[in-house]
């Protein structure tokens, strides 16, 4: 769990920093080129298979763990609750399921459309040889839907809570602890979780509440 977790943590950094290009005021140029690069580069393709496998493995292991642990518990206490355990730590499986459900929607929204259904328009940019899919516009359109924005915010919040526990938990599980460095890791975990999720949360919000200057999109081509 910890190894796949750390891999996914690393992935999120890449995913978020790449997607921050959604905020660029260039009509989606950089984002679309980036997206094309990510979907065509053979190295990235291999990594991405690893990513899907990691997600599945993380999810399957997590659910198996939760089920086995529930069996080992043998009953709840009638009154009161134990000290020390955060809500997140006790509800990692629930959060995980939420995130997974969100992920399915997220993939259906963008990844499927991009890879399989071929419904995206192609655009060309000066200085870039090939035409690329205009995923940027798809994002922009999608995030005009209030319900979708809300779902994204819920998903990202779940992810944040999941990460707050998961980040330091991964280090604990791998035994990577030290009196001096563990407090740093814990702090880093908080900063990371909040930063990643704030970053992701900005994207739908940015598109739902566009800044005062209208993005100079080539919306005509949609």
């Amino acid at each position: 769990m910890s190894l796949t977790g750390i891999f996914l943590i690393l992935f999120l950094i890449v995913h978020m920093s790449g997607n921050l290009q959604l905020l660029a005021d260039d009509g989606g140029r950089s984002f679309n080129i980036y997206a094309a690069f990510m979907s065509e580069n053979p190295f990235i393709r291999v990594i991405s298979i690893g990513l899907y496998a990691s997600i599945l493995l993380h999810a399957i292991q997590g659910i198996a763990l939760a089920l086995a642990n529930r069996k080992a518990k043998g009953g709840k206490y009638a009154h009161g609750k134990v000290a020390g355990a955060t809500w997140a730590s006790k509800n990692m499986a629930l959060l995980g399921i939420l995130i997974f459900a969100f992920l399915c929607l997220h993939m259906a929204d963008f990844w499927v459309k991009m890879r399989f259904t071929d419904t995206l328009t192609m655009v060309t940019y000066a200085g870039h040889d090939e035409a690329v899919q205009d995923i940027y516009s798809r994002v922009n359109v999608a995030f005009q839907e209030l319900w979708l924005v809300a779902v994204y915010l819920i998903g990202v919040t779940a992810l944040c809570i999941h990460l707050v526990h998961g980040f330091q938990s991964a280090f604990q599980t791998l035994g990577l602890t030290h009196k001096k460095y563990t407090p740093l890791i814990n702090a880093l975990g908080w900063i990371y979780s909040i930063a990643i999720c704030a970053g992701f949360a900005i994207m739908p919000l940015y598109h739902y509440f566009p800044p005062s200057y209208p993005p100079t999109t080539n919306s005509a081509s949609m």
Binding site: A68, V82, A85, S89, K90, M92, Q172, T173
Partner: peptide, 15 residues
């Protein structure tokens, strides 16, 4: 023995 796996809730330490 049928004990569960640790998921680092740290309730043990607190109690």
């Amino acid at each position: 023995e049928g004990f569960g796996r640790c998921s680092n809730t740290y309730a043990c330490e607190a109690e």
